[in-house]
Amino acid sequence: MPLFDYSMLLRGAYHDMLVAGLLLSLQLAAATLVFALPLALLVALLRLAPVAALRWIGFGFVESIRNIPLLAHMLFWYFGAPELLPDAVKAWLYAGNIEAVSAVIALTLYTAAFMAEDIRSGIRAIPPVQFEAGRALGFGFLATMRRVILPQALRITVPPLISQTLNLWKNTSIATVIGAAELMYQAGKVESASFRSFEAFGFATAAYLTVSLVITGLAAWYQQRYPVRPA
């Protein structure tokens, strides 16, 4: 038996399983990003809202999500939350791909909580006089944010958001605990079926590293192309 069997990674059933896992991991990351970004923006605005009750809602969301491990979120949304639903709805969910859905919900909430703080920091980096100028022009809070503050703040926030995207990509591996057939799950199945641990987990390691380096390269390119200058 060869020391490293390249053939199982290049073709055949094991190759198909690993590639399917990689594709699902990428889909989990992409779907989470689509939902997490607008949620993070909403939470950041809540945390800066002029109404105290809204600020407390934003604060409660961030602190309650960030201070619970992602593993606990995964297990709750897969095992716990469906138990609160009617039996018919629960049966419908379990008949579908509830593992992927639960993973996206957990990842979205968890990622949005961290991204919200990055966006809030970007907004607070804008000089307060610009907000005051917007209000002096007759804009309300939301209009001032949309027309004056956010276009500048989001540019500042892009590098940390890309960093959070890198964390998101690595966090997709935790979905394996609820049976989502992502990359780590498929690597484990291949290892169990073939007893070729090095090949199975070597593929997973190389895939995570490659995508992570692409995201890191994107962040470096953005910082070089659009350097943040003092306001």
Rank of each mutant, 00 (worst) to 15 (best):
L23D: 01
P227V: 13
L54M: 12
R11T: 14
R225E: 12
P69T: 03
H73V: 09
L93S: 03
Q223A: 15
L26F: 10
A200N: 12
S121Y: 03
A113S: 07
K189M: 15
S212W: 14
I119Y: 03
A106V: 05
F79M: 08
S194V: 07
F79D: 03
A52N: 13
M74N: 08
L3N: 05
F139N: 08
L39E: 08
L28C: 08
E199W: 12
A30F: 05
D87C: 02
A103K: 00
R196H: 11
Q164Y: 09
L183Q: 05
G58H: 06
R147G: 03
R196T: 03
A206C: 11
L33V: 01
L71S: 11
A49P: 04
S173N: 06
M115A: 06
W169E: 09
V19Q: 02
P69I: 00
S192V: 01
A81E: 10
S212M: 11
Y110Q: 02
P151G: 04
S163D: 10
I149Q: 08
G58T: 11
Q186L: 07
A88Q: 06
A175I: 01
G96F: 01
A204F: 10
V34Q: 02
A206Y: 06
A44Q: 07
F198R: 05
P82H: 07
G217K: 12
A30H: 07
H73I: 13
A231G: 15
A204Q: 13
Q223S: 14
A112V: 01
Q152T: 09
T165G: 15
F203K: 08
G96K: 07
E132G: 12
H73E: 05
G96S: 00
R225K: 14
T216P: 05
R146C: 12
Q224I: 14
G179L: 13
Y208W: 08
L213M: 13
A200R: 06
P69V: 01
Y185I: 01
P230W: 15
E99F: 00
V148H: 12
A103N: 00
P50L: 13
F203P: 03
I178A: 09
K170F: 15
S7A: 06
A13C: 05
A81R: 01
Y222I: 10
E199G: 04
S25W: 04
L41S: 02
V101K: 00
I65G: 12
